[in-house]
Every structure is written in C-alpha cells, then in structure tokens.
Write a protein that binds this DNA or RNA. Structure first.
Length: 634
RNA sequence: GCCGGAGUAGCUCAGCUGGUAGAGCAACGCCCUUGUAAGGCGUGGGCCGUCGGUUCGAGUCCGACCUCCGGCUCCA
C-alpha cells in the first residue's frame, strides 16, 4: 500500500503496516523518537494499522509543544499514575484517566480516603517507574474477553466502561524489564515508552462523580501534568502563578474596588472606586439602550411565589429562590426579570402596531447558588444583568436579533474583549415545539448573525430550549476557565403562560414572541473578567482614578489642587496625592494602583509645562491644553 | 450540596512536639522638604473564623458549624 508523507512524497509499505513501521522505513532515529502519528490530521497510536492512501505526519519528542503530542505524553502519564496507586493502595478500584487541557487526571475509588500529602508518596512511586522505564503494548480483544478480564480483576468501573464503549475494545499493557505489568482498558494513543516523560507533577486532589453524575458515587480524582522538558513544567507553573496575580478576587480588594464579607456570601461590597467602573458600564448601557430603541423600566424585586409558579420557574428553580415569609404568603426575591416585564406588557391592550416593545432593566437579582460554586464576582448570589425583553411578531425576529448582534459587536470592541469571546449556538432538542422548517429558519438567523460578527462558535446540538434556539456568549478568565456572559434566547412559551397577547392586523389575538437578551451578561461577572483580562490596568476611560496630581512639596499643593479641579471639570476622575511622602514613593503607589496618568507638579511646572507620566513609565512635557488633547485620545 | 486544602494585625505571611502571639508592608506621630517604582526614627494595632470539648493551661489537640481556595455537580 502507499502512504502519503507531509512533503507529498509516497511511501510503499506492506499491507497492515503501522505508523511505527512507516517511521522505521524512513529511519531508525525517527522510529525511536516518534510519539504519535496523525492520519489526515487525526491523532492515532503509532501501533495502529494504516490504510492505503492515508496521509500521515509523524510527531516526535521534538514536537514538544504540539497539543496532540502533549496529550499522548499525558495520557501515558495517567497510566503511570494508575499503576503507582494500585501498588501503593491495594484494593483500590480504577475508573478513568484521560489527558486534559493542561495535564491529565485519573479517577480512583479508594477504600480509605486519601489526603493531599499522599500525593508526594505517589509521585515518588511514579518517579521510580520512570527510572525503571515503562513501555506500552497495544492489543485488541473482544468485548466479552475484556469484560471477563476486568470482572476477574474486580474492576467494576472498567466493566461498565467496556459495556458502554463504542467500537472495538483495546488494551494497553505497560511493562518493564522485570515484568510487573499493568494492563488498562484504553482507546489510546500512547507513547512507545516512558523515556520522553521528562517532567511529571501531581498537582491536586478533588472529588468527582462517576460519569459526571451526582447521583453516582463520588470518586477521588488525582490531577497532574507532564511535559517533554523540565523547563516546560517550570514555565507552566510560573504562568499559573502569574495568572493567579490577575485573579479579580485578589485585584478587587487590592485596588480597593470591591470587597467580600462572610456575612453575605456571594455578594460584593462596592467601593466608590469600584462604582466608577460599575457606573461606566451602566452609563454605556443606558446610553446605547436609548439609542437603540429600548425603554428602561423597573419592576419589583420581590414577588409572591404564585408568580414563579405560573411562569414555570418554581418547578425548575424553586430551590434556588430566596424566600421571604410575609403573613400568610410567601415571597421570592426575583432571580430574573422576565415575568415582571410580561406583566408590564399586559397592563395595556397591545396592537401589532406597538411592536416591537423593548423593555430593559438592570435590576438586582438573587439566586441561591450552592455554596461550593460561589466564586467572587464571577459566580455570585446577588448580581445584575443588563437584561432586556423584546416583544415582537414572528416577522420581526430576524431584524431584532440582527440588531442585538450589532450591539454585542459594539460592546466587545468598546471593552477590548473580543479576543476572549466565543459563542455557543444551542439548536433544536428532541422535544421541540414547531416544525423543522421553523427551526431551520430561526437557527439560520442566529447562525448568519454569528458569522456576520465573526465570533468563533460551536454548535451545541439538541441543547436549545424546546421553544427556541439560543446563543450563549462565553469569555475565559485568567486561568482559561470559560464563563457564560451574554445570552440571546427566543421564547415562545413564557409569554403564553403569562397571557401576553396583542391584536394583529387580522383583528385577532396573537401571542407575541419574546427575545430575552443580556449582552454583558451579569455586570459583576463582566467586571470580574475585565479585571482579569487587563490585570487590573483598565483602559483609561474605565479607570476609577484617571489622573493623579503629585505636588512635589507643601508649597505646590494649591497649584496642584487647582490643576486637579480643572481636570475634574473637564470630566476626568482626578485626585491629588498629599506631599506627605517622597515623590518616588507616591509614583510607586500610583503604579501599583494602576493609575493611568500621574502629573508631578513642582517648581519647574506651569500651565505651559506639565510633567506627565503615563502608566508604565513613559514621560512627556505638555502644556495644559495639549494635556487635554492627549487625555482625549486615551 | 459533594471531595481535598486553608482561615493568625488593614495586606502578605511566620509561630517545631500545648506554657500569656511575631516580621515586612500599610496606618498614625515626629524629623526630612521631596523630581518619576520604597528617606529616617518612633507609636499604636490581635474574640489566632465561630461555637463547644479535652487539659492546671489551647493559635497549637478533638468535634460541629461558617467562610474562602482548587475541583465535581449545578448555573433560568
């Protein structure tokens, strides 16, 4: 058979030859260093047979940064971990151990719980394995054989995995000179041997439900990471450390933007500085909403739970509702604005001529999230969404959605966060309402809009609500964890439950469509992500303190105050740092506080000549009027 | 909610096997009178997360709870 190489040359191999055979045919060195073969771009085990006409690329230990090459190394590392744990903890049951984004994990069912300090012991055991060396052999067996084998080994999780696995069953046997085999059910691919694993570290311990199902037993997950070079591990750990210093939960209190209190978990205490950011978002929201035809409304924070029963939220989210007893009735703090907006819509008889009606409200919302899931501003119990509900006819849906995408596009550019964002389009579920033609149409509208603004997106097939598709916008935090931000959802259900109607041109009552949308998502979460993205050094227009004037000595205090006042009048958030400390120290403080512009004012300065320093250290000498020009460009 | 880790001054952290709590930064006072990332000297500051237990004696040992961190589940 013929195999195609990356340079388009052909390689003649006997039928059934593997990637490793191909490597051997090219050269012994390549065969030794090969870790993985990509067949038409897809990662495969070196030992798996190739087919005639396959286009292959061999990855070696030199492709140390290739994600697929790293995944193989880490997958094999997970198996070393499993072997070590089995030796140290007889009777432990093993579950599953895949590579993940920055490393790998393996799930175990320990007879006795283990603790973080046990990781050291396990790591030492793996180091021993690495010293002895391990090699991996692949074998294919029948489903029945595999089940028998793992049943005999008393590995119930493996038996279940065999039962639910798709395709052929393969095993990997890991062995060394003196034997001591460990054979694991595994699809692969794996390394040839453990030599390329130059750095391996177990990082942490966590509970994880078997098959991700909270009704199933919780296993102990050991996380680790591994690299082709020691330096790469060091660089990774350093990168992690740097990412931690961008954590908004650290930056917020440090920059005195907001604080948290254990007396109100999941709710922020905003300082005046933090409010400068919060209000900048609010101002923008109000201005743009007005420009784009939204009407700002305000609906109650607290509603009789009868409303939530009627809207359908009680059944699904009742547990997450904060409740307040009042006489004989029970109230709930609103977790969302929709029912309120629908009641407002219902206060008048609506004509098709009134539509679309766009209600906007950034009210405080409360959701009783599980304690273990709270996370600073990004997962809070109290937050505000830049929420809006657009009541419209079916014909108006497309135009409304297009307008929302323009709005998102505008926001992401304004805040400089486009590069962090991606979207997910959730399409028709099995229990959908309406015809396939209708779904083709609505999904098509959303897809076209996504393509138009050029945001990367993936399709979550079947994950839409039964009444309509939805789009969720995501952004990554400093540690690369994705957070749901904005959302655009078409709702053909709630309006009906709450009795929303309008009179159509046909003189008959119709139920309007409602498009729910939040574009920032939660304002709190958005600020959290912004802080992490900018490492606290926010763009000038968002900075809580934009300019700080530093009088050199007491004698310059009055001039400094006058200058600051004039800048405040020009619309800039300005303050004066009293001359109680040296200039050097005050400059340093301003840098640490990430203040974008500082002006030193002493004997040499005047309206004609101001000593302006920008964040980072760049200095210039500007007149007052050219300073204003400069600030306007920031 | 579940698994693991942690909670000591405003912040960052030290405090070995139980014997009345300590540093740096910050704050405050005085001196210096400042020129682009830390001037000097001094002072004050602690329910050692909360509650309970063991002990002559608990920051330290035990238990429960609360909060935070890393995950899991969940996230309208």
């Amino acid at each position: 058979m013929k195999i195609l190489l990356p340079d388009n040359s052909e390689l003649e191999l006997p039928d059934g030859a593997s990637g490793l055979d191909a490597a051997r045919a090219i050269g012994p060195k390549l065969a030794e260093q090969a870790v993985l073969v990509k067949v038409d771009g897809e990662a495969r085990d070196l030992r798996a047979p190739l087919a005639d006409g396959d286009r292959i690329q061999l990855l070696t230990t030199r492709d140390k940064d290739d994600p697929d090459a790293l995944a193989v190394l880490r997958h094999s590392s997970a198996h070393l971990l499993a072997e070590a744990v089995r030796r140290l903890y007889p009777g432990v049951k093993i579950a599953i151990g895949p590579p993940i984004e920055n490393g790998f994990y393996y799930d175990f069912d320990f007879r006795e719980p283990i603790r973080e300090e046990d990781l050291e012991r396990i790591e030492a055991e793996i180091a021993k394995e690495l010293k002895e060396g391990r090699s991996w052999e692949r074998s294919e067996i029948s489903r029945e054989e595999a089940k028998e084998r793992f049943a005999a080994e008393d590995e119930p999780y493996k038996v279940e995995l065999v039962d639910t696995a798709e395709g052929d069953i393969s095993l990997y046997t890991q062995s060394h000179a003196e034997g001591d085999d460990f054979t694991d059910l595994c699809r692969g691919p794996h390394l040839q041997n453990s030599k390329p694993i130059k750095a391996l570290k177990l990082t942490h311990l966590a509970g994880a439900y078997w098959r991700g199902d909270s009704t199933k037993p919780q296993l102990t997950r050991i996380y680790g990471t591994a690299f082709y070079a020691k330096e790469d591990l060091d660089a990774y750990l350093e990168r992690l450390e740097r990412a931690r210093s961008r954590d908004h939960r650290r930056l917020g209190p440090q920059l005195d933007l907001f604080h948290m209190s254990e007396y109100s978990p999941g709710a922020a205490l905003w300082t005046a500085r933090g409010m400068a950011i919060y209000n900048a978002l609010e101002d923008l929201r109000r201005r743009e909403n007005a420009r784009r035809g939204y009407s700002e409304v305000k609906t109650p924070l607290m509603w009789d739970v009868e409303l939530w029963k009627r809207s359908g939220h009680w059944e699904k989210y009742g547990d997450n509702l904060f409740r307040i007893e009042h006489g004989d009735s029970l109230y709930g703090l609103k977790p969302m604005n929709c029912p309120g907006h629908m009641l407002l819509f219902n206060t008048q008889l609506r004509s098709y001529r009134d539509l679309p009606i766009r209600y906007a409200e950034a009210a405080v919302l409360h959701r009783d999230e599980p304690t273990g899931s709270l996370q600073g501003l990004t997962r809070a119990r109290q937050f505000s969404q830049d929420d809006a509900h657009v009541f419209c006819t079916e014909e108006q849906i497309q135009e409304e959605i297009d307008a929302m995408f323009d709005y998102v596009d505008f926001l992401y550019d304004t805040f400089g966060v486009r590069e962090l964002a991606h979207a997910e389009l959730a399409t028709r579920p099995d229990n959908k309402l309406g015809t396939d033609e209708q779904w083709d149409h609505t999904e098509g509208v959303l897809k076209a809009a996504l393509d138009r603004i050029g945001l990367p997106y993936r399709i979550a097939a079947g994950e839409g609500a039964f009444y309509g598709p939805k789009i969720d916008f995501f952004m990554d935090d400093a540690l690369g964890r994705p957070w749901q931000m904005g959302t655009i959802q078409l709702d053909g259900q709630q309006p009906e439950r709450l009795g929303c109607t309008y009179m159509g041109a046909d003189n008959r009552e119709h139920t309007p469509y409602v498009i729910h949308r939040a574009l920032f998502g939660s304002l709190e979460r958005f600020i959290g992500i912004l802080l992490e993205h900018y490492g606290g050094a926010l763009p000038f227009w968002l900075s809580p303190v934009q300019v700080r004037v530093l009088p050199v000595g007491e004698g310059h205090l009055d001039s400094a105050r006058t200058l600051a006042l004039r800048l405040s009048e020009a619309g800039y958030r300005t303050e004066v740092a009293e001359p109680s400390e040296t200039i050097g120290k005050r400059i340093r403080a301003a840098e640490l506080e990430k203040i974008p512009v500082t002006i030193v004012y002493g004997d040499k300065e005047s309206d004609e000549s101001l000593a302006v320093r920008e964040r980072g250290g760049e200095q210039s000498e500007l007149s007052f009027s050219s300073l204003l020009e400069r600030l306007a460009t920031l």
